[in-house]
Structures are given as C-alpha cells and as structure tokens.
Simulated scan of single mutants.
Amino acid sequence: MAWGPLPPGGEETSVRAAITVPSLLLVAALLVAGCATGAGPPTPAATNADGATAAGAPAATPSGGTTSPAFSPTDVAWLQLTVAMAERLLPVLALAAERTTDPAWRRLAAEVADAHRADLARARGLLAESGAPASNPHEGHDMPGMVTAEQLTALRAATGGRFERLVAEYLRAHLTQAVRIARAEQRGGGNPAAMALAARVVRDGSAELARLARLAPAPATTPTG
C-alpha cells in the first residue's frame, strides 16, 4: 500500500497530534507513517487503559487478532511497524558496511545495524508474547521512513559519493520516523517492556541521527515565501 506525499507541513502537524492527544492507540502515528490496514484497531473511545474494549473483551490488534491483557493495541501496532521498518533498513546498512571505504561510514553502518538487529529481535519476541498473529500487516507496504524496493535498487547501482549520499538520505529518513513513532508509543503504550524498547529506540535513534549529521549534514532547505 503506497501512499502519496503529505501536503507541506502535514506530516509535522500529524506527528504533533499523535504524541500530544491522549490516546491508547497508535492509529494517528500509523497514519503519519502512511499505512492503515483494512482491518484496523478499534477507535480510541472504545478502548480502555488495559487494552480491553468497553465491553470488557480483549481489544483487537491492527491485524485482527487479540492481545494478552498486558499488551494494548497501541503496543502491538508499534511493534509491528518497528519490525517492518527495521527489516527494510538492514539491507541498506549491509551494503554500506560492504561497499564504502570510509572507516567512519563503515563503523556507523555496522553499529546501527547491530542496534537494529537487537531491537528487531526484541520486537519480534514481544509480538510473540502478545499473541498477535505471525503475519505482519505492514509487510509489503511503503511508508515514510521505510526503504522502498526502488530506493534499494538505486542504492545498489550507485557508487562513490552518490552511494554515500543515498545511504545518508535513507538512514536519516528511517531514524527520524522511527524516533517519532517510538515517542508516540511512549505516550500511548501500555506494556512496560514495549515502552522500554520504545525508550531505547528514541535514545539510540537520536544519538545515531546526531552522528549522521556530523558525518553527512542534511542538505540545506531553501526558505519559501
């Protein structure tokens, strides 16, 4: 499911709403990410702090299953999206570690990959504990921050400075979005282990963005108006 670009300023506005409006669901953050499944989670009004519906039954996950009482639909939605995003980034980091001759780039790519593999394993483990279906509703979807098949093809064909610029572009987009949705999980999640993982994603992602900025500063934007 590929979604068109958001209007100027639309993504920032939606992100602020997702992390400031009290909600136990990550629906707003998922919409910011550009993906909503047909069998979506219940509305915030129908879900309480324990991840149960108003009727007292376990709340449905975004993929149509049920969670244990310890996991809210917000937790499951965030974990599923985190897994999907990390799976897309790891091939980029593998290429970077293999093909760049710059020691700083090789070190950054290797360390970010190690952190993401650890986070990916933890997120998969938590999803298994939650009782969510094994299938990921975000698999095959293209969302902001997620490396697309076309981008990976372009990266494989690139060399030299263009290769490093593309790696920087894709990594910056991923880390920025990963930190945003992890902050939404910190505000709206319910499971302590999932929220602890979100805190680690925010901490590590922010540090990695700072390292990336020193290694490959983001292109300056031209003021409009």
Rank of each mutant, 00 (worst) to 15 (best):
G131L: 05
V92L: 06
A86S: 14
W78S: 10
E111H: 14
A94T: 15
P69R: 15
A121F: 04
E129K: 12
M85E: 04
A84S: 14
S63F: 13
L120V: 03
D75T: 00
R99S: 01
G56T: 11
S68F: 05
P103F: 09
A123T: 07
G125Y: 05
A113L: 08
A104N: 04
L79Y: 05
E87M: 04
A97K: 13
R88S: 12
L81P: 05
S68W: 08
L95C: 13
R122T: 11
A109F: 04
S130H: 04
P91S: 01
F71W: 05
L79T: 06
W78Y: 10
A84E: 01
T82F: 12
V83I: 00
R99Y: 04
S63H: 12
P91T: 09
G64C: 01
A115N: 04
A115W: 01
A113T: 07
L90Q: 03
A109P: 03
P58A: 14
T101Y: 10
L95M: 13
R88W: 06
D114Q: 10
R99A: 07
D102K: 12
G65L: 01
P133S: 00
T82A: 13
A94G: 14
L89C: 09
A110N: 01
A113R: 13
R106S: 05
R99G: 03
L120M: 03
A110M: 01
A96M: 14
L126E: 02
L79A: 11
G65E: 06
A59W: 09
A57G: 07
A128R: 02
P62A: 00
A77L: 03
P91G: 06
G64K: 00
G131C: 07
T82E: 13
R106M: 09
V83R: 00
T61V: 04
A70S: 11
P69W: 00
A60H: 10
G131T: 06
A59M: 09
A128D: 12
P103I: 08
A97R: 15
A104Y: 15
S130N: 06
E98N: 14
R117F: 02
D75S: 05
P58C: 14
